[in-house]
Computed example of a mutant assay.
Amino acid sequence: MIRPRGTTKLAAIALAAVVTTVPATAYAAGGEGGPKNQRDSSSSRGGLQNGKINVETRVQTKVNGSSGPAKPGKLSSVDGDWTPPACWYEPAFSPKEIEAKVKAWRKVKLFGIGDFVGDVFDGYYKDGEPYKDYNLDKQGEGMFWAAAVNPNRKDDPEANSCDKLPFWVPESETPKEPLAVSPKVLAEYAYDELPLPKTEITMAPDGETKVNLPTWIWLDKAKFRKVSVTASLPDTNLSATTTAEPISLKINPGTKDATTYPASGECPIVDGRIGEPWAKGKAKKTPPCGVKYLRSSGDGSYKLNATVTWKITWTSTTEPGGRLPDGEFGADQNVTVKEIQSINR
């Protein structure tokens, strides 16, 4: 019987070679795509993908502030070089569960692949390089941590950056691995889970306006308020709360032939409101937030884009917390602009 030995990378390379030759129906050990009759409660979270054992994350989220029934909006970071983590490592398997996973692999009889993969894992977790007997003598004293993919970013190439095989972490110890789950990682994950309201502005006139007529723009004060999400990992003290607070509205009229109010096109929040509702008697006033079109849209319409900038902060009971990159979330609205008709007598 072959007992490959060596480092994590060597084992991963060997497993990668196996994975590329195994049909999807042969994924055992509770892997995604594995036959249901080969799954059990001890291995249902794990799957062998591209030479790695990945697990479905156990991180849970809870919305603490509600912004109404709006579906979660996709925040775009104003920092183009930053995104929430695509993967991390989290506590996943007890010694008995790792052992059960290897036994499940040995049930795959296709071309002897099951035994080959079992031998690779035995060489790593059973025969003393670097573990012995799956750490069964340490049952209850720690967990094997495995790679978990952010479900919001599973198609992100960075989701493959967590390429280590499950590694042992004693109870109450923090692994030195930079991608190990932590309050900050949870806060960054919660960034993706913030349920933001649709950026649907109110305009006056609504739908159709006239050339050189200022159009007032504002946002519903009740909808645009702070919203926060708490992300936590069950059975640990790892938790973080990420909060989004609207700070401004950016207007892009959809044409160069327009004037925005203010000139920057960015309307700040004043007294908790973005913009000011139009009312009778304000016709000759300049809107604090709005747009004036200088040319007709002809037979079509202009695509006005309204984007809200959100300030993002996070807190935790175990770490100081701080700021995360501001986020933007916007939407387009069609605006028809007509010429003012004059009557010739």
Score class of each variant (00 low, 15 high):
R39F: 03
F329N: 12
K62Y: 08
T57L: 02
P130Y: 14
D137T: 12
S94M: 08
S232D: 14
T209D: 03
V335R: 14
Y261F: 09
I247G: 01
S94Q: 05
K164Y: 12
L186C: 04
E177D: 15
K71H: 13
N150E: 10
T307F: 11
T8K: 12
V120Y: 05
S301A: 13
E245H: 00
R5D: 08
K338A: 06
K176M: 04
P4S: 10
G123N: 13
A204F: 14
V169Y: 04
P246H: 02
K71M: 14
Y302Q: 02
P277C: 08
R106M: 09
K132M: 04
V227K: 07
P175E: 05
K107M: 07
P195K: 00
G322E: 02
A306S: 15
R273G: 02
E141Q: 15
P23M: 10
V149N: 02
E171H: 14
I217H: 07
Q341D: 08
M203K: 14
S44I: 07
I247L: 01
V181K: 04
N64E: 15
I98K: 01
A231K: 08
G30M: 00
G30H: 01
S239A: 13
W218Y: 10
K292V: 04
V108A: 12
K52V: 12
T20F: 15
D115L: 06
Y124E: 03
G275T: 13
T202F: 05
K303V: 12
V19Y: 13
S264I: 01
A29W: 07
I217P: 02
W314E: 00
D119L: 07
T83R: 00
P95Q: 12
T255D: 04
E97W: 00
K184S: 01
E193D: 09
T7M: 10
Q341A: 07
V291K: 07
G254C: 12
R3N: 06
P320H: 03
D257K: 11
N37G: 06
D133Q: 06
G47V: 04
A100K: 10
G300M: 15
G281T: 08
N344G: 06
E276R: 14
A180S: 11
N50S: 06
S296P: 02
V78C: 00
